[in-house]
Design a protein around this nucleic acid. Structure first.
Length: 281
DNA sequence: TTCCAGGAGGGGG
DNA sequence: CCCCCTCATGGA
């Protein structure tokens, strides 16, 4: 990955493995704003602007080192795509979404966001999260941070229903209470995926799918394969195995792709969702 | 009107 | 372990 860090910006010269549209439209993150010429991103309590300039992407931020990690810039996606290309059914998806990257998101933000995501659609997930940040996030002038679990400690079930969380409101209240009474998300970084998942599953509103999203998009544990309704369609198209539950599909896929599971999942998910939506119109 | 969306909890077998 | 039902909400 060819990039350089200056005082308040990162300049990315090689865009073959870095596409703003691929990174943000692939459903791994909900808090971003796309404009004609730029993207604005808020992660945790950090803000950055990304835009094209002379065939480079400029990431402008007061904390470029945070976003160097966030965008996983030290990772070699060319090598990853090369390994995945040995699976012939991966090639269309990789060609379609070659500029994807797996973001390294804040743990609390990923957990709360993906609890909200359950059995929900992306526009409404974004709306709920934006309302949550508008009402409870710390004000930095031109943007608001994602509220910490501590800042959400007094929020009631009614509050979460008011911002549209629906029946997930009580999951959020319960999980936030756990986060404020000893449940240590950071501790799970050192556990292997299976153990970390087992811990996350103790939280209300966290099943296999939500846990795997937090493990992948927060902890960057790339040996798990979040399996939602879209991926289940892909699973049937590619492997055509009858009688697998969603959980069994996730286990099969994560064994099949091993440490490349998370990357494969994102290429396949984004490609499947975009082509399906396209065909629907 | 019914179905679907990055599913999970709870009961029962 | 499995299957089955219910859980808000809003757009198509």
């Amino acid at each position: 990955m060819d990039y350089k860090i200056y005082n308040d910006k990162i300049i990315i010269k090689d865009l073959e493995d870095f596409s703003l549209d691929h990174i943000f439209e692939c459903g791994q993150v909900f808090r971003y704003q796309k404009y004609k010429e730029k993207y604005e991103i808020i992660s945790k309590d950090k803000f950055c602007v990304l835009f094209l300039h002379n065939d480079c992407v400029i990431i402008s931020s007061t904390d470029p080192v945070y976003f160097e990690n966030y965008f996983d810039l030290q990772n070699d996606y060319r090598a990853i795509k090369e390994k995945l290309s040995k699976f012939s059914f991966m090639r269309d998806a990789i060609n379609f979404a070659g500029g994807l990257r797996i973001l390294r998101q804040d743990l609390e933000e990923a957990l709360i966001s993906f609890i909200i995501s359950a059995n929900n659609n992306i526009p409404r997930i974004k709306k709920i999260i934006n309302l949550l940040c508008d009402k409870k996030g710390k004000d930095y002038g031109n943007y608001r941070a994602f509220p910490t679990a501590y800042e959400l400690r007094d929020c009631t079930e009614d509050f979460f229903k008011e911002i549209g969380a629906g029946y997930r409101a009580r999951y959020l209240v319960d999980t936030i209470k756990e986060l404020n009474s000893g449940f240590d998300l950071e501790r799970l970084r050192n556990l292997d995926t299976e153990l970390a998942r087992k811990e996350l599953l103790k939280l209300k509103g966290v099943g296999r799918k939500v846990a795997d999203c937090v493990l992948l998009f927060g902890y960057h544990k790339t040996d798990c394969f979040p399996t939602d309704t879209w991926i289940e369609k892909v699973f049937m198209d590619v492997f055509n195995k009858e009688g697998y539950s969603a959980n069994q599909k996730a286990s099969f896929l994560s064994e099949y792709f091993a440490d490349l599971s998370g990357y494969a999942q994102q290429y396949l998910f984004y490609h499947a969702r975009e082509t399906y939506n396209k065909n629907k119109i």
